[in-house]
Amino acid sequence: MTDADDTTVASTSKSTKRTRLRSLYHSRKARQFRANSLNIVGLVIVLAIIASALFAPFLTPYDPTEQNLENRLESPSLEHPMGTDQLGRDILTRLVYGAQISLRIGVIVVAISLGIGTVVGVTAGYAGGYVDEALMRFVDILLAFPGLLLALVIAGILGPSLTNIMIALAVVGWTRYARVIRGSVLSVKEQEYIKASQLMGVSRVRIILRHILPNVIGPVVVLATIDMAGVILGTAGLSFLGLGAQPPTPEWGTMISEGRNYLQDAWWVVNFPGMAIMLAVLGFNLLGDGLRDVLDPRDTDAVQNKGL
């Protein structure tokens, strides 16, 4: 193959990509998503948070842990748009870097929960019988504990650290994925073409990968998005209680906990992190709702669980 051929292939695939994107943008579902302006608000908030996490070092000239005791507790100004905290650190900088932490925890916890949930859900749904019964009863048992209380106890026993918070939240979090995925697997399994493939001797793994998993993506994406909100809120809550980040990590919940003594004299120390948590949670909730309307038309009636 010559160089010229390469370029052509590349440019073709680029333009197909563009066409695909354009057709995605004009698709019925995308239009449906855009019709509700709250969905757009959610998407914008989430994108903004992701962007600030990714480009944190370019967004601010300060270091999130750099102290300046002479300039502590300064009110918002041009130099420090959200003021400085009790150690003279720039709050905006800490919030922006804090977005990295919250998102990272959110993604990791959701990924672990999703991983365990998928394995358990697919196994239960596909195998059926005693395996299904045993796995789902175990899920029932875990769901018998109010989620965040169990996370609290687990994190408390393991000791304060962000890793332990992630473990605790994942232990509590995977059960809902397992249920949703099992449900989808069950409904897909009964369909004719799956039965046909089975008869044709297509391997189980292949059936699961090719036919079953694509069908459960919709509800799972919705659940994962809304779960991001839950995990961010849960992390902040557990950190507020002192079970999470160690100083000087700019974790949002920890910032509120450490700043609460300054509530009256320096309102910015607590209220900006509070708003950051609220915005992030709101963004993922709105986005999740929007995606549900589009991807998961059966109203799953999933009531969010506001945590701590």
Binding site: L38, G253, N271, G274, Q304
Partner: peptide, 25 residues
């Protein structure tokens, strides 16, 4: 409808520990 849905979501998204201090203040 939008307004009250948004308000409901705001209530859902506000961490209790922040809301508590805010109300106290």
């Amino acid at each position: 409808d939008y307004g009250s849905q948004l308000a409901a979501l705001l209530g859902l998204s506000m961490p209790n520990f922040w809301l508590g201090y805010l109300l106290m203040l």
